[in-house]
Lab assay of single mutants.
Amino acid sequence: NQASVVANQLIPINTALTLAMMRSEVVTPVGIPAEDIPRLVSMQVNRAVPLGTTLMPDMVKGYA
């Protein structure tokens, strides 16, 4: 099963992502692949992401 990127904390809108904000977890539906975590660092979210939410490509500016 593919691990996805999950929010490790509440991430406010327009926040630049850091490693501490993300974790890898096997979830359904599948979100951004966990191997993309290094690429996500310093990218901004375009909405508030609650703790435990799977990051989807449309939630991260410049990812999709």
Rank of each mutant, 00 (worst) to 15 (best):
E25Q: 09
D36M: 11
S42N: 15
N8M: 11
I32Y: 02
D58F: 11
D36V: 06
V60H: 00
T15N: 14
P29W: 04
P33N: 06
N14E: 09
V45Q: 00
I13V: 11
G62I: 05
V27F: 03
M22Q: 01
N46Q: 12
P50S: 14
Q9P: 01
K61P: 14
T53C: 03
L51E: 10
V6C: 02
L55I: 08
A64N: 14
V26N: 10
V5D: 01
A34I: 12
V26C: 04
N1Q: 14
V6P: 00
I32T: 02
P57T: 10
P57C: 04
M56A: 15
T54G: 03
M43R: 14
K61E: 15
Q2A: 14
E25G: 10
A20G: 13
L17A: 00
N46W: 08
I37E: 04
Q9C: 04
N46G: 14
D36N: 14
P12L: 10
A48S: 04
Q9W: 11
A16I: 12
V27E: 03
T54P: 12
M21E: 02
V60M: 06
L17G: 01
Q44G: 04
E35S: 15
S42M: 09
N46Y: 07
I13E: 15
T18N: 07
L40F: 02
T15W: 10
N1Y: 04
L19F: 13
N46K: 10
Q9E: 14
L19C: 04
S42P: 02
P50G: 05
G52N: 10
L19R: 10
N14K: 04
A3I: 07
N8S: 08
I37C: 02
V5E: 00
V60T: 02
L17C: 02
P38I: 15
I37M: 13
A20E: 12
Y63C: 03
R39E: 04
T15G: 08
V60Y: 01
R47T: 11
T54Y: 02
S24T: 12
D36T: 07
P33L: 11
A7H: 01
P33G: 12
P57H: 11
Q9S: 13
N1P: 07
P38V: 07
P57A: 09
I11V: 12
Y63N: 08
G31H: 01
L40P: 00
I32M: 04
A20H: 13
V49Q: 02
L10Q: 09
V45C: 04
P29T: 14
M59Y: 14
M43G: 04
T54Q: 04
V49A: 06
G52S: 12
D58W: 13
M43N: 05
V26G: 06
V30Y: 06
A20T: 13
S42L: 10
Q2E: 08
P38S: 09
R23G: 06
S4V: 03
V6L: 07
T28V: 15
A64C: 04
S42I: 03
V26R: 07
D58G: 09
M22H: 00
V26F: 04
R23M: 15
A16R: 06
T53G: 15
I32D: 00
G52F: 05
M22G: 01
T28D: 08
E25V: 05
I32P: 01
T18V: 06
M56Y: 09
S24H: 11
T54S: 04
P38N: 15
G52C: 02
A34E: 15
A3P: 15
K61M: 09
D36P: 00
E25Y: 13
S4C: 04
D36Q: 11
L55P: 01
T15Q: 13
V45H: 00
A20S: 14
Q9M: 09
P33V: 06
G52T: 03
M59H: 08
I32C: 02
T53E: 10
L55T: 00
A16L: 12
M43F: 10
T18W: 03
E35T: 15
S4P: 01
